[in-house]
Write a protein that binds this DNA or RNA. Structure first.
Lengths: 114, 114
DNA sequence: AAAATACTTAAGTATTCGCTTGACAATCAA
DNA sequence: TTGATTGTCAAGCGAATACTTAAGTATTTT
C-alpha cells in the first residue's frame, strides 16, 4: 500500500523547500560536496542568519543533513530526499503516458466502454 | 553548452509552481487525463477563481497546457515540464554520487592529490 | 584572559501569496 | 429572448515568507 500520510507530508515539505530559488542554490552548491554554513553563505548575497533559516527548512524536509563538530556545522545533501521528489514526478508522468497507450487501444478496438 | 539563462528561469517557475500543494493536487488530477476547469475545481475546496489563478501559474511554468473550445477550457499535463524538473534533481544527485566514487578512488589509491 | 570565529536565536518588517468577493463576458439550452 | 453554465478579471485582505538587525553562546586562537 503506497503513499502513506507521512510520505505525503514529506513530499509536501520537500517541494516547498525546493520552491525557493535560494534554497535550490544551496542544494546545488551542496551537490558538489559537504561544506560549512559560512562557506555556503559566502556566494549568496544574504546574511548568515538567513542561510541558517534556509538550512532549517532544508533539514526538516530531509533534503539536507548537518552535523556540528566544534563550532562549525557541516552540511551535506541527503540524496534520498531528491529521489523521493523525482519519483513523485515520474509517477505523474507515467500515469499520463499510460493513458496514451490505453487511448491507442481504444482507437484500434473502437468499442467496449469503461 | 547546457543550462541557458532561459532554462534556469524555466526551472525556477516549475519548482515555484510545484511548491504549492493545491497546484500539485491539480497536476495529480490532470495526470489521470484532461478535464475542464470546473471539473478540476470540484474536489478542491476553493472557488473557481482561485483554481483559474493556479492554472495561470501552472501554464506559465509550462507544466500544463489549456485550450478553450466554446465556453469550456480543457486542461492537460505537459510532461516535458515535469521531466525538466526531474532532470534537475537527477543531475544534483549524480554529481553527489560521482563524488562518492572519487572518494572511493582516493581511499584505495591514497595518494596523488588534485 | 582577551579577541576572534562560527554560528544561534529572537524580534521586527516589507513583500509575496493564496484566497475570496463581486462584477462581467461569452456560450449554450429552453 | 431569457436563463443557466462556464469561465475571466480586478480589487482587497489576512497569513505566510524571506529577509534584516541585534544580541547572545560556544569554541578556537593568540
Amino acid at each position: 500500500m503506497p503513499s502513506h500520510k507521512a510520505d505525503i507530508d514529506h513530499i509536501d515539505q520537500i517541494f516547498r523547500a525546493l520552491g525557493d530559488p535560494t534554497r535550490r542554490a544551496i542544494v546545488e552548491k551542496l551537490s558538489e560536496g559537504p561544506i560549512s554554513v559560512s562557506q555556503l553563505a559566502q556566494p549568496l548575497n544574504i546574511t548568515l542568519a538567513a542561510v541558517v533559516q534556509h538550512l532549517q527548512v532544508l533539514e526538516e524536509s530531509g533534503l539536507v543533513q548537518t552535523e556540528k563538530v566544534g563550532r562549525v556545522r557541516t552540511c551535506r545533501i541527503d540524496p534520498a530526499g531528491l529521489s523521493l521528489a523525482e519519483q513523485w514526478m515520474a509517477d505523474r508522468r507515467s500515469v499520463w503516458e499510460r493513458r496514451f497507450d490505453r487511448l491507442g487501444d481504444l482507437l484500434v478496438e473502437s468499442d467496449e466502454s469503461e
